[in-house]
Design a protein around this nucleic acid. Structure first.
Lengths: 248, 248
DNA sequence: TATATTTATGCAGGTTTATGCAGGTTTTTT
DNA sequence: AAAAAACCTGCATAAACCTGCATAAATATA
């Protein structure tokens, strides 16, 4: 078997499984331990994979591991900066929880004078650093996993509110399934927020584009504006653009 | 299984659940206790997570308030340790704001199963780190200086509650003037909390003993238990003892 | 065609890494 | 205060690693 064939096989395995073991490759390709090691070494030098003790992992795999923090926070900051321009003085704004929303609050102008309504404790805390905004917390029974208020009481309170804008920190979005989430309680609250707002803004990092979770929050058509860290004409956003959503 | 695979699994679990337990990971990944510990240690060094006794928590979740520059934190810790013994399972407990109360929450046993009611955002946040307690937040309009909800709505909600205990973070106390405070809005809320509780516990560091502020919260006779960092027979506490207050 | 050159592979040996285990310490729970 | 759980340190071992060398195959050259 040619070296190039082995290399091709290794890459293919990596694409499928995101990882390969040296010992496994030895057996399947019937070559010595050293040969496999040299193969992996060469492919690593070409930047095709990342060698680790015992085998190799695919580049995208390693990406999601190491970049979780650095890369994602940069993206969130980009999103936050785009988002905060949407808020004008004297608006009433609904906010969900999530780190992206928190980032946005940090980016708000200290001159802004608006009313913010949220069921999220960390968001409320962050808002209190802003001297000129009014902060209204929604709900009483707190959900520890989501760090926010959930339940019938929240939904009831939201039903008496009419806001100008609602910013939704989004866990999963897909052109067909719309915005989806994993917790039933959180979905209930988000639905009520969407009912209570005039315009809906979804903030999502590209990593979560085209992913689906079990429960639907709303359809794509309910979204007015979608904010990601990508340029508005990026191909990943095309399906949303074609449905008439404003992209930032 | 490669080390990197385990690491990826741990990070993924953290992203979903915000917390992992070493014992659980041991079983799911079928490795020894030590290996998991080393994994968590390495990931913590890389800044991917925060290690805690028994496992790890996600970095973004661990939005914890800095306890670093709390004034007189040794004294407050002493007070907190005395205070938390007063709380038994299934109690309903009212809490004001303040660093002493926060310190007490940190000292609570994670096994405690009780209901806590508070109008303070930082206190609510701190309480959510406790796995087994119910947390109820009171109010909607937030006061930025006090970082808590104030106003008629809070008073009204409190009037419908009957709690077993109320812990009052106290700014000033004096044998004649009772507990006093400087903000009218905060005093209104504290008064309502006192109305709503069976027993009132005042927590105060010694340097605030025998000081007076403009507005009265309650008289000395309303207090059931007074907790300071001093021994119960300290001379500074004699005037309170003579009025029949229980001292800790 | 015969010989030199390169390339690919395997092997010997010594080194490093990953993991589990033993023992003792600290933290948590009862 | 005792017991249990989680923690840490150091050590042992096996697996994976590397370096250098030898050999075989492929390729190039005379």
């Amino acid at each position: 078997m040619l070296k190039q064939e082995r290399h091709a096989f290794i890459i293919q395995q990596l694409n499928v499984h995101n990882r390969v073991y040296s010992t496994d490759l030895q057996q399947r390709l019937v070559v010595s331990e050293d040969t496999i090691r040299r193969d992996l070494q060469e492919l690593a030098e070409e930047g095709m994979l990342i060698k680790v003790h015992g085998g190799a992992v695919s580049k995208s795999f390693h990406f999601t591991l190491s970049n979780n923090n650095v890369y994602a926070s940069k993206a969130k900051k980009d999103i936050a900066q785009k988002a905060c321009h949407l808020i004008a003085n004297d608006m009433v704004v609904l906010l969900t929880g999530g780190t992206t929303i928190r980032e946005m609050i940090n980016e708000l102008s200290p001159m802004l004078k608006a009313t913010f309504i949220t069921p999220s404790i960390p968001i409320a805390l962050e808002l209190m650093n802003h001297p000129r905004v009014d902060v209204i917390f929604i709900g009483n029974q707190l959900n520890k996993n989501a760090q926010m208020a959930t339940g019938a009481e929240v939904v009831k309170m939201l039903s008496t509110i009419r806001a100008d804008l609602c910013f939704l920190g989004t866990n999963a979005i897909e052109a067909g399934a719309g915005i989806t989430d994993s917790s039933w309680e959180v979905v209930e609250v988000k639905k009520a927020m969407i009912q209570a707002t005039d315009k809906l803004v979804s903030m999502v990092i590209a990593e979560k584009l085209n992913t689906i979770q079990p429960m639907q929050v709303c359809g794509v058509s309910d979204i007015d504006t979608l904010i990601t860290e990508l340029p508005a004409d990026h191909e990943l956003l095309a399906p949303y653009h074609s449905k008439g959503i404003r992209l930032l």
